[in-house]
Amino acid sequence: MRLGLVIDLDTCVGCHACAVACKEWNTSGTTAPLTDYSPYGAEPSGVWFNRIRHYEIGEYPYNKTVNFPMSCMHCENAECVTVCPTGASYKRAEDGIVLVDQSKCMGCNYCSWACPYGARELDRVSGTMKKCTLCIDRIYDMEIPEEERQPACVLTCPAHARMFGDFDDPESAVGRAVRERGGYQLMPELNYDPSNHYLPPRVHAPIPTDGLRKKAAAKVKEWVNRVVER
């Protein structure tokens, strides 16, 4: 098994709900807590497993906003595990999930240097490295209904932009999505072979904005707006 996520960049609306759901679940999960530093202070900061960036791609008028959630990619060639001197970082043989044993970590930061995706963050309070567990405490929990045995970020996504599954199975939802939508890995040239894949935005014809004839109602509305003082 090779568990991981597929992120649909076409439908992600950048609402940060996945990051918030992740933080809520995992702050009492297996590598809890996700410490916050001065959460109500002037410069709040803290540990997050999932961060969302926002990009503009292309030049106007052929530009587009792309929201870009990133968490641990659970790489096949997980250098973070190779470089770990204590054996705290490990990759599970049975499902490929990369985890940090909090009782063994000495907080040397070396694994975070080896990670190109910024998936690992040091918790200054516990002194240990923390990272996405793919909600290992949800996905194998036989006490909850089967459809809820998914990572918190996937369950919460209102745009259904996140999928969870087994990349070794070509007929799984994630395998099919990657095949049919041209799913890709980030920074493939570094050869980390990340499990998480990203689906590119679909290509749409640009919506024309210039040289349109205005409708009569719009003209009247414009005229009224000009005449009527607020």
Partner: peptide, 21 residues
Amino acid sequence: TGFNRFSVRLLDQGHTFGTFL
């Protein structure tokens, strides 16, 4: 980001203040 044929510009890094990264 995987967008090899377009210009790419960061609009927002998603956090207000510094992070570990």
